[in-house]
């Protein structure tokens, strides 16, 4: 029976991991915009025709 103690503790820790993930996502602003992502996913991607040097510029920027 005592193995249940171990299992329960592990399960609470796992749930705690999800809680932490939730808190981090709130902090990073995932809840600041709840409308745009829903619409954005319905829009088709267009072919990315960016010139090459632009991509470079973006890499540099990061």
């Amino acid at each position: 029976m005592s193995v249940i103690v171990l299992l329960i503790i592990v399960s609470v820790l796992v749930a705690g991991g999800f809680l932490t993930a939730f808190i981090i996502s709130v902090r990073r602003g995932q809840f600041s915009d709840q409308t745009t992502p829903a619409i954005r996913m319905l829009l088709d991607d267009i072919k990315n025709e960016k010139p090459v040097e632009k991509t470079k510029g973006e890499l540099n920027a990061r």
Partner: peptide
């Protein structure tokens, strides 16, 4: 970004 080379990326917050 397709309109001008100087734009890297743009993100919309529709609600705000």
């Amino acid at each position: 970004f397709k309109l001008h080379n100087g734009i890297f990326e743009s993100t919309v917050n529709f609600g705000d």
